[in-house]
């Protein structure tokens, strides 16, 4: 089986798994995608940023993981919007990504946690709950 065929097969498998679970897919995909900036920040923190050092960080194992999960999150979003309302999925995806990045910064990169961040994350969870609880396709 050619590489192209393998990619297409894995993609079709993913599409079948997502069908009917678009909201859950976007929640999971955006949560994973929110970790990409955290990893990138971890990699680029404290280094003298040049074109070369940027690409060296990007091509390191952690850099490849960050790029891959960013791409996976983007593609899951594209699969989900093909059958579900974008007016719902887009706000969900952007807020979850931001919330996970903020919390990742606090928990992994030891950034400061303030009331505004905590309230933002709690509001995000309530918003997602309100949408998923009463969602009608």
């Amino acid at each position: 089986m050619s590489f192209k065929q393998k990619v297409l097969n894995s993609y079709n498998w993913l599409v079948d798994k997502v069908k009917g679970k678009e909201l859950k897919t976007v929640i999971a995909g955006s949560a994973i995608g929110g970790l990409a900036p955290v990893i990138a920040s971890y990699l680029l923190r404290g280094i003298n940023l040049t074109f070369e050092s940027y690409f060296r960080a990007l091509l390191s194992p952690l850099g490849i993981i960050a790029v891959s999960i960013g791409a996976l999150s983007y593609m899951l979003f594209q699969v989900a919007i093909s059958t579900e309302k974008i007016s719902l999925l887009s706000p969900m995806a952007s807020t979850i990504t931001t919330a996970v990045t903020v919390m990742g910064g606090v928990l992994i990169l030891s950034e400061s946690l303030n009331l505004l961040k905590l309230a933002g994350v709690i509001l995000c969870i309530i918003g997602i709950w309100a949408i998923s609880k009463n969602h009608k396709k």
Binding site: L88, P91, A99, L116, G120, C124, I128, A130, I131, N134
Partner: peptide
């Protein structure tokens, strides 16, 4: 619908706060 609209408003406020 109304519930989805409330959820979206909460998400917009949340993103601004974050």
């Amino acid at each position: 619908n109304k519930h989805e609209a409330i959820g979206i408003i909460l998400l917009i406020i949340s993103t601004i706060m974050l």
